[in-house]
Amino acid sequence: RVIAMPSVRKYAREKGVDIRLVQGTGKNGRVLKEDIDAWLA
């Protein structure tokens, strides 16, 4: 299970990103909004 705040999950869904593919850089591997942006870049 991916650790991410609900707002980040929603952001990823809106961008069409599968959050399971994104490498989290936050505490304990948490996926941050910046990680979604970096994955899209």
Rank of each mutant, 00 (worst) to 15 (best):
A12S: 06
V8F: 02
D37V: 07
R20P: 02
M5V: 12
R13V: 11
V2T: 09
A4E: 04
I36D: 00
L32I: 10
K33S: 07
D18A: 06
V31M: 03
G24M: 03
N28W: 15
G26D: 03
R1H: 14
P6E: 09
R13S: 10
L32Y: 10
P6L: 13
V17H: 00
V22M: 06
A12P: 01
D37A: 05
I36G: 00
T25A: 04
R30M: 13
G16T: 04
R9F: 15
I19W: 09
W39H: 08
W39Q: 05
V2M: 05
K33L: 10
M5W: 12
K10I: 08
Q23R: 13
D37I: 07
V8Q: 02
G26S: 04
I3A: 09
T25M: 05
K27M: 13
D37Y: 05
A38E: 13
E34M: 14
M5Y: 15
R1F: 04
A38W: 09
I19H: 02
S7W: 15
T25V: 03
E14W: 15
E14M: 15
I19D: 01
K33N: 06
R13P: 00
I3V: 11
A38N: 14
V22D: 00
A4N: 05
L32F: 09
R20L: 09
W39A: 06
D35E: 01
K10G: 05
V2W: 03
A38L: 14
K27P: 13
V2H: 07
R20N: 12
Q23I: 15
W39Y: 15
I3H: 06
L40K: 06
L40G: 05
R1Y: 04
D18V: 05
T25C: 04
K15V: 10
P6S: 14
A41F: 15
R13N: 09
V31H: 02
V8L: 04
A12D: 01
P6Y: 07
I3M: 05
R30Q: 11
K15E: 06
Q23G: 09
R20W: 11
D37G: 03
E34V: 12
D18M: 06
I36Y: 00
G16V: 04
A4L: 04
K33W: 07
K27Q: 11
Q23K: 15
K33A: 08
A38H: 15
K27C: 08
V2Y: 03
V31T: 05
R13A: 11
A4G: 05
D18G: 03
D35T: 01
E14F: 14
K27N: 11
V2F: 04
V8W: 02
G24T: 03
V22T: 04
V2R: 08
K10E: 09
G16Y: 08
V31K: 04
A41P: 05
G16S: 07
T25I: 03
I36E: 00
A41G: 11
V22R: 01
P6K: 15
I19Y: 05
V22Y: 01
D37M: 06
G29I: 02
M5K: 13
Q23P: 14
G29M: 09
W39S: 05
Q23M: 14
L32G: 06
K15I: 07
A12H: 00
V22H: 01
G16K: 09
V31L: 06
D37R: 06
V2G: 07
R20M: 10
A12G: 04
G29R: 08
R9E: 06
E34L: 14
Y11P: 01
D35Y: 00
R13H: 12
R9T: 07
D37E: 07
A41Y: 15
V17E: 00
G16L: 07
G24V: 03
T25G: 05
L32V: 09
R20T: 12
G26Q: 02
G16A: 06
D35H: 02
D37S: 05
R20E: 10
T25D: 02
K27V: 12
D18I: 06
A38G: 09
K33T: 08
R1N: 15
I36N: 00
L32P: 00
T25H: 07
R20F: 12
E14K: 14
N28H: 13
D37Q: 07
Q23A: 11
A38S: 14
A38I: 13
K15Y: 08
W39R: 05
E14H: 12
A41C: 12
R1D: 12
L21D: 09
V31P: 03
A12R: 00
S7M: 10
L21Q: 11
G24Q: 03
I19F: 05
G24N: 03
S7V: 08
Y11D: 02
L32M: 10
G29Q: 07
G24W: 02
R20S: 13
L40S: 06
G29Y: 07
G29N: 10
I19V: 07
M5P: 10
A4I: 08
V31F: 01
L40F: 08
P6G: 11
K33Q: 08
N28R: 12
R13M: 15
K10N: 08
V17I: 09
S7P: 06
L21R: 11
K33H: 09
S7R: 12
M5N: 12
G16W: 06
L21S: 10
K15R: 12
N28E: 10
V31S: 01
R1Q: 13
R1V: 14
P6Q: 11
S7D: 12
R1I: 15
E34W: 15
Q23E: 11
R9W: 15
A12I: 01
V8S: 04
G26H: 03
V31E: 00
S7G: 11
G24E: 02
L21W: 11
R20D: 09
G26M: 03
G26Y: 02
G24L: 02
Q23F: 15
T25R: 07
A38R: 12
I3D: 09
A4F: 02
S7T: 09
I3N: 10
R30S: 10
Y11C: 04
R9G: 03
E14I: 12
I3Q: 07
M5T: 15
A41T: 14
G29F: 08
G16Q: 09
Q23D: 09
G16F: 08
E34A: 14
G26V: 03
Y11L: 04
R20I: 08
R1E: 14
L32W: 05
A12F: 01
L21H: 10
K15T: 08
V17W: 01
A38F: 13
N28Q: 14
A41L: 14
I36S: 00
A38K: 13
K33Y: 07
R30W: 14
V8D: 04
A41S: 15
M5L: 13
D37T: 06
V8P: 02
R30V: 08
K33E: 06
V22W: 02
L40Q: 05
D18T: 05
S7Q: 10
V8G: 02
D35F: 00
R1A: 11
V31D: 00
K27E: 11
R9M: 13
M5R: 13
W39T: 05
E34T: 15
G29L: 06
E34S: 14
G26K: 03
W39G: 02
G26A: 05
R9S: 05
V31Q: 02
N28L: 14
R20Q: 13
K33G: 04
A12Q: 01
L32H: 08
K27F: 14
R30I: 10
K15D: 01
K33P: 05
R9H: 11
V17P: 00
W39M: 08
A41I: 14
G26E: 02
G29K: 08
L32N: 07
V17Q: 01
L40V: 12
K10D: 07
Y11H: 05
G26F: 02
L21N: 09
N28M: 12
D37H: 05
L21M: 12
D18L: 07
K33V: 10
L21E: 09
V8N: 03
I36F: 00
K33R: 12
D37P: 00
I3K: 11
I3S: 09
W39E: 04
A12Y: 01
A41Q: 14
A41R: 15
Y11Q: 03
V8R: 01
G26N: 02
